[in-house]
């Protein structure tokens, strides 16, 4: 059973336990660091693959940033046999109900939205999280539309988006994120034209 406490053995014991535990944690951390990075990369690749047609390069290696206002937006260009098939753009909005939402939006080279996917969000389960394609068909309406002739705002605000019932704020944030992505796309196009 437990030992009698003296100042020396208490200090020694706590020190020893902390020492052993931190050592153990350092080892586990070192072992898991690489797999965790791999998992995160796989997640990014997965969402890129979800929003673009088939490609055979590794978009996450060709990633570059575009400045929209003061925010750096990550762009992942995808190509098939050397031909550009589209850009996956990682965009965000700060207007979500539960703070920031992050989306991956796929644009075909002509600016048509191919698909969208939710990367992370803090929206209310059962309400705002319906923007996720697995929860409702809200995101279906963006497939194959071109932002030039589809106003990226909810119908309540005079746009073309059917908002999620009882989640107008989330829908607005979704539109806001898409708008930011489209701006990024336009900037890419502009630089491409200048280069030509």
């Amino acid at each position: 059973m437990a030992k009698v406490s003296s100042f020396r053995n208490m200090v020694l014991c706590l020190f020893l336990i902390c020492f052993v535990c931190s050592g153990l944690l350092a080892v586990v951390n070192a072992l898991t660091q690489e797999p965790i990075a791999a998992v995160n990369l796989a997640k990014t690749n997965q969402s890129i693959a979800a929003v673009l047609p088939a490609f055979d390069n590794e978009p996450s290696q060709d990633q570059f940033d575009v400045m929209v206002g003061s925010d750096a937006i990550a762009v992942y260009p995808a190509s098939l046999q050397g031909n550009l098939v589209g850009y996956a753009i990682k965009t965000f909005s700060n207007k979500g109900f539960g703070g920031r939402i992050t989306l991956m939006v796929g644009f075909l080279p002509d600016g048509t939205i191919y698909n969208t996917s939710v990367v992370s969000h803090g929206e209310t389960p059962g309400l705002g999280d319906k923007m996720d394609a697995s929860k409702s068909n809200f995101s279906e309406q963006f497939k194959g539309v071109h932002p030039a002739n589809f106003r990226l705002a909810v119908k309540k605000d005079g746009g073309d988006i059917d908002a999620i019932t009882a989640s107008t704020i989330t829908s607005r944030a979704f539109a806001d994120a898409l708008k930011r992505a489209y701006e990024a796309y336009q900037l890419i196009e502009k630089t491409n034209e200048e280069e030509l």
């Binding site: 059973m1 437990a2 030992k3 406490s5 014991c13 336990i17 535990c21 931190s22 944690l25």
Partner: peptide
């Protein structure tokens, strides 16, 4: 068995937190 009883709880907490 070898933890002094007065620092029992802090020691357990360290173990659990790890």
């Amino acid at each position: 068995g070898w933890i002094p009883s007065k620092v029992r709880i802090p020691s357990y907490i360290v173990v659990i937190a790890s």
